[in-house]
């Protein structure tokens, strides 16, 4: 595994090189979720990267500006920056690997970053949206339920700040309005059923987007904050995301 900083924002990234023989058809970019969900998902993403690399191309994981080991403060996080960073990450993995096709996966708000970054691109051949945030308003309501500590106009949720601008951007999200490039297959992998996932499935079907929805029952509790810093490793789901990505 290689670690480095990349792009104009000097984002922290890592590449897990492919172990499979032969030339892979595509590189992979994984997009982390937001806040406490990022903390709880980090090791699961490492496992994802390791498993994917055994069957497919190189896997890039990275921290958006203002998160993880990347520069910036949490208060500076915006969705627009996340989407831009994801675009930079796609370019980076292509340049490093020499591959011109990319597959992507993202959990929750990371799925939104992946989806929005793919709009207008012709190099994303497959996108796996893992328990995606379909409607931003619903996500903000969830954060609110977790318990918000307001500091000025910023919300602090489970230890992470969400600025007014970030919330405004998230509020406008509706993945059902996503413009999916013709070259892109969309696989929604969900841990449980809800109306939003169903609405997204129907919207994609109505627009003849290639793809499917797969249900793999597992813990959906990404934003729950326990008092000891537990993380989630939903093995069946991790395997399901890998299958969806490398199929």
């Amino acid at each position: 595994m290689e670690f480095f900083y990349f792009g104009p924002g000097h984002l922290f990234g890592s590449i897990t090189p492919p172990l499979a023989r032969g030339t892979p058809s595509a590189a992979v970019v994984l997009c982390y979720p937001f806040g406490q969900e990022y903390m709880r998902a980090h090791r699961a993403y490492r496992q994802l990267a390791t498993l994917i690399s055994r069957m497919a191309g190189p896997v890039l994981r990275f921290d958006y500006f203002g998160t993880g080991d990347s520069p910036g403060e949490g208060e500076e996080v915006t969705l627009q920056r996340w989407v831009e960073d994801t675009g930079v990450a796609i370019d980076e993995v292509r340049q490093r690997s020499g591959l011109d096709r990319v597959r992507m996966a993202g959990l929750r708000l990371g799925a939104v970053a992946a989806a929005l970054a793919s709009e207008g691109r012709d190099d994303v051949e497959r996108m796996v949206l893992w328990d995606p945030v379909i409607r931003g308003r619903a996500f903000l309501d969830e954060l609110d339920k977790e318990g918000v500590t307001p500091v000025g106009s910023t919300w602090w949720v489970n230890g992470f700040p969400a600025s007014e601008r970030l919330r405004r951007e998230v509020d406008e999200v509706d993945l059902c309005r996503l413009t999916v490039p013709a070259a892109t297959q969309v696989v929604q992998v969900i841990s449980h059923r809800n109306v939003e996932f169903e609405r997204f499935s129907q919207a994609m079907e109505a627009r003849s987007v290639r793809g499917e929805t797969r249900l793999i029952p597992s813990s959906p509790n990404w934003n729950y904050s326990d008092d000891v810093g537990g993380i989630l490793l939903p093995r069946e789901m991790i395997r399901g995301v890998v299958d969806a990505l490398v199929a």
Binding site: H42, R43, T67, G68, D69, G229
Partner: peptide
């Protein structure tokens, strides 16, 4: 490290 939390620390406090 704190428990199983990676090096950025609980709530990114280590960073």
């Amino acid at each position: 490290n704190s428990g199983v939390i990676h090096r950025v620390g609980a709530c990114r406090v280590s960073v």
